[in-house]
Amino acid sequence: MSDKLRDQQLFDHLKSRYIGVGDADTTQDEWISNIKRDTYSSFASHPNLLYYYSISTNQPKALTQFHFINKMIDPINKKSENENS
């Protein structure tokens, strides 16, 4: 029994420490938000991808980066959903 408890504690510790660690109760929204945040941060911080997007959207790299991080705040548009309901 104590092993299980310790495992659980260890897991909770890891979960609080590392973003994105999931468990059986992770909702779809949480999971998707996490993936999207990872993706946007990758776009914002890999120089080649950032350059690629800044050319295709016709705006400076600095602004492209700014918009990507802005999207990380609420990647699945939860806020507008809450307002609608």
Partner: peptide, 9 residues
């Protein structure tokens, strides 16, 4: 690697 949580951004 270039990660979301790695300082250096």
């Amino acid at each position: 690697g270039i990660r979301r949580l790695s300082p250096g951004f």
